[in-house]
Each structure stands twice: as C-alpha cells, then as structure tokens.
C-alpha cells in the first residue's frame, strides 16, 4: 500500500514540476491564468504521463510475451517503421499539423503488420523467437531505407529528421491529448486484462497451457495491443528509448514479477519518468530544448547499469 502511495506521489510530483518549470518564469500566483501553462505546459505534462505510461506498460507486457527481459517496445521493429514513415513525410514535404504523426503511425503499423506476418510460424502460431528476429530484421531494413533518404536530403530537413528520431513532446496540444485519450483505453485495458495469463507465460508455453492459459490468442492480443500503444506513442512523440526497458525492471525490483501489480505500476512509473525527463529536456539548456530521448538515455543507461549489477550479483 505504501508503495502505491509513493508511486502516486512520484506521479504527482513529476506532474507538478512539469507544470511549474520551464524556460519562461511564471510566478506561482499567475500559474492558473497563464496562457503558457494552460495551452503548452499542461497538455504537454499530461501527454508525457500518458506516453511514458504507454511505453512502460507495453515494455512490461512485451518482456513477458517474448520471454526476454531485455525486450523493449521498440524491439519489434516499430521504431524503424515509424522513423521511415516520418522521414518519408519530411522528405516529401508533406505539411499540416498531423502529417508527421500520421506518417509515423502508418509506418509503425506497416512494420507491425510485417513483423506479425513473419512471426506467424506455418501461418498459424506466433513464435516469440521468430517475432524477435523478424522485428530486428524489419527494423534494420527500415532504418537502412531511412538513412538512405536522410543522406539524400538537404541540411535543414536533416536536422528536423534527426531531432524527430530522438523524440520530443514539443508538438503536444490539447488536441493530441484528446486523440490519445480516445485511443489508449482499449489497448491499455487489453494488456491489463492479460496480467494473470502473462504470469503463466513466464513458465513457458507448455506449462502455461496446462495451467489453463490460451497461449495463442493471448500472444496475439498482447502483441497487437502493445504494438498499437507503441505506434501511437511514437506517432505523437517520436522514438523515446529506455522508458519501456528500464521502468518494468525497476518495478520488478520493487513489486515483484506478478503482472497484476507490475503492469499498472509500470504505467504510472513510466509516466512519471517521462514527465521528469521532458521537464529536464525543456529547462536544461533553455531556451533551446533537448530531444527527450537523449535525456531518457542519459538517465536510463546508468540506471540500467546499476540494476544489471544488482541483478547479476544476486
């Protein structure tokens, strides 16, 4: 119980900091009436919580699905597909507020469909090992094409593309928040409902089936829901690494492996972490802004190293 309280406080604190801090100094008294807070910081903070939560939740679910603790939401080729979509949109000068997110989303979905098809062994069963290989292959191919396009494009475009690849929430608006709020509940509910059978899957396919899990439908549901979540996250905020890898591991250390608490905890902690990282990205080198993926990597990699040491020591 105290752990949940602590996690709730962490989320509240991350949210408060995201609203309070920024390149523009806004006195506390004017916080509620400030346009910057209302139309920039607030939606951005909410979006950071939601996107970070989605990445944490998708990461925890995928680690159980592919039975690999090193899995993260982007392992299965989604980032490659999304990047390719986004870079294509930039290179073809497609404009409009939704052009980039839509192109990235379509790219991620295409990668997801391709990986899913390749992962179906004999056209019937979803084999997690084949899924990983297919994800890596599709990701590598997409990033080769992406690099080819980037190397042929002009300097200004190059910078835009590069920044997008490292993620950022600067495009956040209430519209984005609304879209995400409509889109997220279904895949989130599907993943949370898979918590118990995911516990069984940690034992392996055959033991899980003997204990009553419908392994095949479970794998499809979890793969599709986690991928759809990740695709939406990458569409609104680019490729933000490490949240989906680090957060589930940290939560396992605190909560244990049982997915009924691990999945919601990963959602909350992922949101808090991304909100903090985004605040850091905004204020660290103000008035300029760091891609948030760089912050999560700079914080995440040392954290991960410490956790790995603890893990291998015990």
């Amino acid at each position: 119980m105290t752990r949940w309280l602590g996690l709730g406080l962490a989320v509240a604190l991350a949210f408060a900091l995201a609203v309070l801090l920024g390149p523009a100094h806004i006195p506390l008294a004017q916080l509620a009436s400030s346009d910057i807070v209302r139309s920039l910081r607030l939606p951005r903070a909410v979006l950071a919580l939601l996107v970070g939560g989605a990445l944490g939740l998708a990461g925890a679910s995928l680690q159980a699905l592919v039975r690999n603790p090193l899995a993260d939401p982007f392992l299965l080729g989604l980032s490659g597909g999304a990047s390719l979509g986004a870079v294509l949109a930039i290179a073809l000068h497609v404009t409009g507020p939704w052009a980039l997110p839509l192109a990235a989303f379509v790219g991620a979905l295409a990668a997801m469909a391709l990986v899913y098809r390749l992962g179906l062994v004999g056209g019937a069963e979803l084999d997690p090992r084949v899924l990983i290989l297919a994800g890596v292959a599709v990701g590598a191919f997409a990033s080769a094409v992406t690099t080819a396009i980037v190397s042929l494009s002009e300097a200004a475009q190059l910078r835009n593309t590069f920044l997008w690849l490292w993620g950022g929430l600067s495009g956040a608006s209430w519209d984005t928040v609304l879209v995400v709020c409509v889109y997220f509940p279904l895949p989130v509910a599907v993943l949370l409902a898979a918590a118990r059978p995911l516990d069984l899957l940690a034992l392996g396919e055959e033991p899980a089936r003997h204990l009553g899990a419908d392994v095949e439908p479970l794998r499809r549901r979890v793969y599709l829901a986690a991928s759809l979540l990740t695709a939406a996250a990458v569409a609104v905020s680019g490729v933000i690494g490490f949240v989906g890898l680090i957060v589930p591991h940290a939560m396992r250390l605190l909560w244990g492996h049982r997915h009924r608490s691990l999945l919601p905890a990963s959602f909350l902690a992922g949101g808090a972490l991304l909100a903090l990282a985004d605040t850091t990205a905004r204020v660290a080198v103000a008035p300029r802004e760091l891609p948030v993926g760089i912050v999560t990597a700079l914080v995440g990699v040392p954290l991960f190293a410490v956790m790995l040491r603890r893990w291998t020591a015990s």
């Binding site: 940690a202 392996g204 055959e206 033991p207 204990l211």
Partner: peptide, 29 residues
C-alpha cells in the same frame, strides 16, 4: 485445467519467484 493438472518435464521461470506464488499460479483456472 480444473480437471487435469500436469507437472511438465521442463519449464523455466523467467523471473525469480517465491514458492507460495508459484503454487498460486495453479489457482489461475
């Protein structure tokens, strides 16, 4: 799974687990 319980030849626990928790997995069905 409520009728037939199986102790398979092989399994491996991906994550560390306590005895009571692993036996509780038998309650899943």
């Amino acid at each position: 799974a409520r009728v037939a319980g199986v102790v398979p030849q092989r399994e491996d626990n991906l994550f560390p687990q306590r005895v009571r928790d692993t036996v509780m997995l038998g309650r899943y069905p």
